[in-house]
């Protein structure tokens, strides 16, 4: 076994010295990456970069307050309503999905360019908001409930399904201006994350029982269609499978 996969050491630097260097702040002290010099047979541990642990769906809210969670559940229940095609977005776990995403790297925009100056541009220049997803939810949910209390004397979650649908339609069409946050910045991230939660692998807390995949006929995390590629215009009858397997695999 080659042991040549040592730390960047054109000048004799060791991994320990690299880690101990205060200059690491330049790139970000929290960064797990390390410069490496690679020679010979690369050293790796199988699956070392593949661990995405399933979220714990029973662990309680990680980012949302109880009030925020109730509002989000009341939203996703209307964006994806229960009907003859599927359970609701709420029952599918979309709010749990969003909560766990916000509690992770995504929630803080850790991977994104977040340097200013922040200024409005053309639509084609894309999202220029200085707000992270966490901030968008915190401000947006608060502003939405403020609006509901002022206009309806109740929180969003306390309104009827019809009232909630009407409010969501007004948000989407910018017929309501929320305080503290651009209405569309809030609405669009909620819609995007709800759909992600409904259609992503159940690993992330949504798409309970692969409900959306069953609904669409998407087979999920399969890896070999060589026997099927030339079976054209035919219902292949696949039951979906997730990265974590399928409930009927359990005895």
């Amino acid at each position: 076994m080659s042991k040549k996969n040592d730390t960047a050491k054109p000048s004799g630097l060791t991994r320990r010295e690299l880690l101990g260097s205060s200059a690491a702040l330049l790139i970000g002290a929290s960064s797990p990456v390390q410069a490496l010099t690679v020679r010979g047979t690369p050293e790796w541990k199988p699956l070392s970069n593949n661990a995405v642990p399933p979220v714990d769906t029973d662990a309680g809210w990680q980012f949302f307050t109880d009030d925020e969670a109730a509002t989000v559940e009341a939203i996703v229940e209307r964006l994806i309503p229960a009907d003859d095609l599927s359970m609701s977005g709420k029952d599918a776990g979309c709010a749990v999905f969003i909560d766990r995403q916000l509690a992770g790297a995504y929630g803080g925009s850790e991977r994104l360019y977040m340097h200013g100056p922040f200024q409005d541009g053309t639509p084609e220049q894309g999202d220029q908001s200085a707000l992270t997803p966490q901030q968008r939810y915190r401000l947006g949910l608060g502003a939405l409930n403020d609006h509901c209390r002022n206009e309806h004397g109740a929180t969003f979650a306390e309104l009827s399904a019809e009232q909630r649908d009407q409010l969501l339609t007004q948000l989407e069409g910018e017929e309501i201006q929320l305080d503290d946050i651009d209405t569309l910045v809030f609405f669009e991230i909620v819609l995007q994350n709800t759909m992600e939660g409904f259609f992503a692998d159940p690993l992330y807390g949504g798409n309970r029982d692969m409900v959306s995949w069953k609904m669409l006929g998407f087979p999920g995390a399969r890896y070999d269609y060589r026997d099927y590629v030339e079976r054209h215009n035919e219902d292949l009858g696949f039951e979906p499978v997730s990265i974590g397997g399928r409930p009927d695999w359990q005895a």
């Binding site: 790796w44 699956l47 593949n50 692998d201």
Partner: peptide, 16 residues
């Protein structure tokens, strides 16, 4: 490296 970065069981992850 394919062996450590891409695994048949977990690369099928649209969100990630």
């Amino acid at each position: 490296d394919t062996a450590k970065d891409f695994n048949i069981a977990s690369v099928t992850d649209e969100l990630r």
